[in-house]
Write a protein that binds this DNA or RNA. Sequence first.
DNA 1: CCTAGATCGTCAGTATACTGTCAATCAACA
DNA 2: TGTTGATTGACAGTATACTGACGATCTAGG
Lengths: 170, 170
Amino acid sequence: MPSKPAAPITIDAVYAAPGYLFRRMQQIAVSIFMEECKAFDLTPVQYAALIAIHTHPGIDATRLSAVIAFDRSTLGSVIERLQAKDYIERKPAPEDKRIKLLYLTKSGAAILREIIPAVERAQARILEPLKPTERKTLMGLLVQLVDLNNEASRVPLRAEDALEHLGKAG
Amino acid sequence: MPSKPAAPITIDAVYAAPGYLFRRMQQIAVSIFMEECKAFDLTPVQYAALIAIHTHPGIDATRLSAVIAFDRSTLGSVIERLQAKDYIERKPAPEDKRIKLLYLTKSGAAILREIIPAVERAQARILEPLKPTERKTLMGLLVQLVDLNNEASRVPLRAEDALEHLGKAG
DNA sequence: CCTAGATCGTCAGTATACTGTCAATCAACA
DNA sequence: TGTTGATTGACAGTATACTGACGATCTAGG
């Protein structure tokens, strides 16, 4: 069997590249999320941060970045915006002057309850074009791939480790 | 059968959401791309733009955005940076004063040839944690999903339409 | 106690992304 | 032909992302 000839340099190779396809899907997912949630003035990132703070009240920014695998620098401005919207508040930690603890406000807890159905509609719409069996297959492979590539990203997910400071079981 | 109880609001729901997983995979993919290609000072977006211009010499910015499904506004600065690096040049179109035609320079064509192996390594590394069969399954579903969701993104892919102006078969 | 190293939040700089708008230009039609 | 409407590139404004650095602070070791 002769070796494959070198592929010509064309845009078609890009269309079939995983990196390109993941970029497109991310953009599509954000677009659908924003459409379903346009009544709430919350971005996907802000939503994830709110959920994480709700799950782990009193978490600090660095640990929050590990829990949702977002960049620590980026998270700073995300937190500022959530605070400006009065969805969270920051309290200094008495035992460590470097740290500011994050809590949901009543507004934050309320909007979280209200936005959930819209978020679920968005997540469903993203996979809607596939058959139910295909959706399960895709999600299974995706969860696997993200997990196995965890260390390849700048901010690996540290769902367990990050919570030890809270004195709660991981 | 009793209806499912409402899921509690926790971060675990986010970990299993397609939107979150696609975001993570996009970040992982970019990270791997930049690592493999760090010798070349090219981002994934800049690479895709170069390939597209190489495939369709004399394309204009608006059509380029349709060919790679990138935002037209964003593409402006991408083009500026590629021009600053002397990888592309822009020539005014004689028959339409609004349009600037895009062409690769010799530098641009050269770096494209050189970077290809690194890009292919990156794309391979993204899927490496999966078994070969799983890779094929995932990519098949991903291509399908991106295609079927094409209209959901702000900038749908218009690979064929965009090229009519060039007088070449799509 | 005191210093070396680690960590925290923050900032500057760069690069995607998207929304909306604008002037210049072009195309189509009355 | 003259005006309307669409298109093009550009811009302002906002929001992620990542790199690298910084002062303030904490921790460990001597």
